[in-house]
Amino acid sequence: MLGELSPLLDRYGYAAIGRFLAFNAVGAGLWVGVRATLGYVAGGHIAPVHQPAQRDQRFLLVVLGRLVAALIVWHLLRRRPAETTKP
């Protein structure tokens, strides 16, 4: 995602410290505001989300475990040096 934003970020790479701190404060305020609002809205509706998640917890853990195992196997196979055949 930063690859698409790098031309925009490059423009601010040499910003003065005051400008950087202002943008940083605005970004932090927006981040906290959005997260707090989403948490408040989701907190009021936790029961409809929690009951199905509780019911399907074992299934989700099995799926997550298989995904992690597949990623580990893929990583180990990718690191293995390729066998060379000599005639």
Score class of each variant (00 low, 15 high):
G13E: 06
Y12P: 00
N24T: 13
A16D: 15
T37I: 05
L21Q: 09
L71V: 05
D10H: 04
G18M: 04
E4F: 15
R19F: 06
V26C: 06
A36N: 03
V63I: 13
R78I: 00
E83K: 13
A36F: 08
P81G: 04
E83L: 15
V32C: 10
Y40N: 05
L21I: 05
F23N: 08
G33I: 07
A42T: 13
S6A: 14
R11N: 05
L30A: 13
R19V: 14
I17W: 07
R79Y: 01
A47Q: 09
L61W: 04
L61N: 05
G33D: 05
L21A: 14
N24M: 13
G27E: 05
L8C: 00
I17M: 10
R66H: 04
T37C: 10
V32M: 13
R11M: 08
L8S: 07
G44R: 12
F23V: 05
Q57V: 03
L61D: 06
Y40S: 11
H50K: 13
W74L: 14
W31F: 14
R66D: 08
G27F: 09
L67C: 07
P87Y: 04
T37D: 01
L71T: 03
G27N: 09
D56S: 08
R11K: 15
S6V: 02
V32Y: 12
G27T: 08
H75V: 13
R78V: 01
R35W: 02
F59I: 04
S6F: 04
A53Q: 08
R80N: 02
G29K: 04
V34W: 03
A36P: 00
G29F: 14
Y12L: 14
V34L: 14
G44Q: 11
A69W: 04
L67P: 00
V68N: 01
H50Y: 14
A16H: 07
D56Y: 08
D10Y: 01
G13C: 00
R80Y: 03
S6Q: 14
R80F: 02
L2Q: 09
W31T: 11
G65P: 03
L61G: 00
L38H: 06
V68I: 15
H45I: 04
R11S: 08
L67I: 01
L38E: 10
F20I: 14
V73L: 14
R55T: 11
W31A: 13
L9T: 02
M1L: 13
P81I: 01
Y14T: 12
Q57D: 01
E4H: 11
A28N: 11
H50E: 10
R78H: 10
Y12N: 04
T37M: 10
R79S: 15
L60I: 06
T37H: 06
E4T: 12
D10S: 14
P48H: 06
A69R: 07
M1R: 08
Y12C: 04
A15I: 09
R58H: 10
L2A: 11
L61M: 10
L2H: 03
A25G: 12
R55K: 15
W31Y: 12
L21H: 02
R35S: 11
Q57W: 06
R79L: 14
I17H: 06
A70M: 02
V63A: 15
L2C: 01
R58G: 03
V62D: 10
